[in-house]
Design a protein around this nucleic acid. Structure first.
Lengths: 238, 238
DNA sequence: CGAAATCTTGACCGATCTCAACTTACGTGG
DNA sequence: CCACGTAAGTTGAGATCGGTCAAGATTTCG
């Protein structure tokens, strides 16, 4: 269950200009901008930090800012009508959230929770809009980012609709494996509980299916959430 | 199965300036623009038409244009790795598609097929980009539209992940019912086969669940895909 | 080191898919 | 406008996947 303790830092806080810059520079959508634009963005960016487990925003809450992760990790999840939660994505430094409500409505549809101690940069709704009006190239960057996310989400939806849990898990593993080098071994990017939520299943099933993959010789499970892919091709055929 | 017969009309075709205007005006993202901007958009819009069953674009194909539906209906679907199709959405006049690839990659990720004889307006990739650079307000409109779609898709994903078929169907019915007036009766916006694909289930299950809802007194099925909602509250609790 | 959370494993059951046969609706061409 | 062929929809029986509950093992973190 989520702790609902809000502890925004004071707007200046440990956020020196230097750290704003670092934060803003991290974000793909603000890359490759001219110095002057960058300075302008930085002048409106504020920073805040959250302790592990703290809620950054909740569904129904008013959305006022774009959040850019500077340091740490954020879980974004939805609560379905029946109260079950689904993990939508996990944000790492450079990722951002809160944009949906900025363009569409004023309230959040999802929940954001710091998984570890986390610091973020904030850009207020109206300030962001002004920036977008002024610098069309930023808008286009944001559009690209949205396209990417929309595409990923549509792909994810299609998987839920057409693939069984076993296949979804296999696909997930092969995707994580893409970023690893030979021998293919990686640490699961989240707990199995979260993975279950992300894949729309239960921890029990994740446990069983991973065991099955191991029996079938596709993977090898090691301690500390580490997994070695032994037979990637086999896994792709699941 | 989809017929893959391409028959783009000649770019002028039946597309008089008048029809371009009508088409462009239909689109929410181009509403409320100044006359001059509107003229500029219209000057780069072309038209095309497709016969029922024709493929408008396919996954893997190069994306060159934004398609705006002028008349008719378009199914957008994905084919999953195992060859199963999932209906993503249905476009009606005023809706648009093809934007994903415009901002992200050059190839389509999904399939578009004319459900009935359909005419569309086209705006070429580079021309659209120029427009967005020139008129930031259009970008913001597109961002809003993207936000909306992203939100819908995320909601849909969360449903797949957390709700059973019965609930998804009940939710679908209540959402369609929102647009209807008392007595709540409407025509299903697609075939049950497509509805099954959209909801990630099979036609058999749709048939059975609707029958069950009828037995339980929530709905009444009539001929011609018409459905009357008898007990909306009951349906909401499913 | 110990409490709490995560993870695992087993047994059971229920929702939904599959396959197959059949009925109904629809679009096309005569 | 009707007849026919094809696609859509229905219904039943059986199989299966995956969820639920419960007990224990293991890990994590303060």
């Amino acid at each position: 269950m989520t702790k609902h303790t809000h502890v925004h830092s004071h707007s200046s806080g440990d956020g020196s200009i230097g750290s704003h810059r670092a934060c803003v520079r991290l974000v793909p959508i603000f890359n490759h901008l001219e110095e002057q634009q960058m300075d302008e963005i930085m002048s409106v960016a504020r920073s805040a930090s959250f302790k592990k487990g703290e809620t950054i925003y909740q569904a129904g809450e008013e959305s006022t800012s774009l959040f850019i992760v500077n340091r740490g990790r954020i879980r974004i999840y939805r609560l379905s009508e029946n109260g079950r939660e689904q993990l939508l994505r996990i944000l790492n430094p450079g990722d951002f959230t809160g944009e949906l409500a900025l363009f569409r409505s004023t309230t959040h549809e999802s929940y954001a929770e710091a998984m570890v101690d986390t610091s973020v940069c904030l850009i207020r709704r109206d300030e962001l809009r002004t920036l977008l009006q002024k610098y069309p190239s930023i808008s286009i960057k944001v559009l690209q980012e949205f396209s990417k996310r929309l595409d990923e989400t549509e792909r994810q939806t299609a998987r839920f609709a057409t693939e069984k849990v076993e296949t979804r898990l296999a696909m997930f593993l092969t995707e994580v494996a893409e970023d690893a080098e030979e021998p293919i071994e990686f640490k699961l990017p989240m707990s199995k509980k979260d993975l279950a939520s992300y894949l729309g299943t239960t921890p029990e099933t994740i446990s069983r299916k991973l065991g099955q993959f191991e029996d079938e010789g596709y993977i090898r499970q090691k301690s500390g959430r580490r997994i070695e892919i032994v037979d990637l091709d086999g896994l792709l055929l699941v």
